[in-house]
Write a protein that binds this DNA or RNA. Structure first.
Lengths: 211, 211
DNA sequence: GTCTATACGATGATAGAC
DNA sequence: GTCTATCATCGTATAGAC
């Protein structure tokens, strides 16, 4: 067994367990058992449980953020070239489409997405700091784009609307068809779900604003 | 020291710690130390950690759900009497206003609200089952109301839109002004925040729907 | 009945010998 | 890279004091 195998097996197992049981709810013993490696291997490769978490972020979040940022920049650049305002929908899609697609990529990515959104939504202390710093630049550009798209709405308000949109999107990201439903009647296909999310989010972002 | 004192002190301490550290992240020792009672008192009064959680639900969620249900029923009844459709905004406000106000009631209620919404959003296993069964009737009536308000939108779609709305509302409910911000520019007063939430949610619920 | 002191078995993360 | 020892902390149980 090579080092590469061991490291990856740990990462894969951790990703799955963190996603289903949460970061605090997952034990290193559970991870190493699932990965079929020695308990101490985690400490050897990643230093600690937190180090393992950081490695997971590095593996998945960095490339994803790159795509999201590029998408947003493209929308903004094209709008500028045409000397028109980008629409809130275009801007939001530039972020949401890769986000939603990422979830359907690999099975591992799916677990990672669930893990990260659960942490974001639930306010898991250990995770929030590490990942907020990584997504902050994306959020800033997103907010810039929304400011351009909706010049009549103050930026602080848009910041909250963006956060609301994240809360709504999170419901799709953490949704697991296998799990017992949170509400009855939530049996839409993945594609339809995503279309509905976009409708809702755009409707909310563009809602009339009163002072 | 009477029993009432001890029980309540445990409940109050648990509420605060569960809210800030999560259910799994909180130890009985931490709770009993904060409450300045003996460790075994939890087991004596509540049977177990889970029993303590159930007692917290009983104390806060039952009366809140009563108010929410009554509010929704009132809106539906009045609309029926006038033989008009309720608006999505009315229906949603019947649920959201008491929910948001509850958070501002007592300091303890604030902690409880954060705890419960963190659990809902983050998918905390231990909590979800216990509390989903308690809010399910409210959600059902809410969905009934939205179906009446927006007859052009299929019920499955409305179920998802309602879930999106919950995700958005959760962002207000878990927000703690003391904590480091998730995004920059989120410095609105509680009142404004709530007005913005309603604008966003109603905009999303009423968004045009394509098949 | 209430509450306390203390102990148990299980599991947590980590460090050092190999 | 692995194995084992170690130590902290977890939830729970129980015996006895007030």
């Amino acid at each position: 067994m090579t080092q590469r195998d061991t490291k990856d097996r740990i990462l894969d197992a951790a990703e799955e367990l963190f996603a289903s049981d949460g970061y605090v709810g997952t034990s290193l013993r559970g991870i190493t058992t699932a990965a079929d490696v020695n308990l101490a291997a985690v400490n050897y490769h990643f230093g600690s449980k937190e180090g393992l978490l950081a490695a997971l972020f590095e593996r998945r979040l960095v490339p994803l953020n790159k795509v999201r940022l590029e998408n947003i920049e493209t929308v903004l650049r094209e709008a500028e070239q045409k000397a028109v305002r980008p629409s809130a929908g275009e801007v939001m899609k530039a972020f949401l489409i890769p986000t939603l697609e990422f979830k359907r990529n690999a099975p591992g990515a799916r677990h990672f997405a669930r893990m990260i959104w659960r942490a974001f939504l639930g306010g898991d202390r250990g995770m929030q700091e590490s990942f907020l710093t990584r997504v902050a630049p994306v959020m800033q550009r997103l907010l810039d784009g929304l400011s351009l798209a909706l010049p009549g709405i103050p930026r602080e308000v848009l910041a909250w609307r963006l956060r609301f949109a994240m809360g709504a999107a999170g419901q799709v990201m953490v949704h697991d068809p296998e799990q017992p439903a949170l509400m009855t009647g939530l049996r839409l296909s993945e594609e339809v779900m995503q279309k509905e999310l976009l409708e809702f989010v755009i409707g909310g972002l563009e809602a009339p604003h009163e002072d």
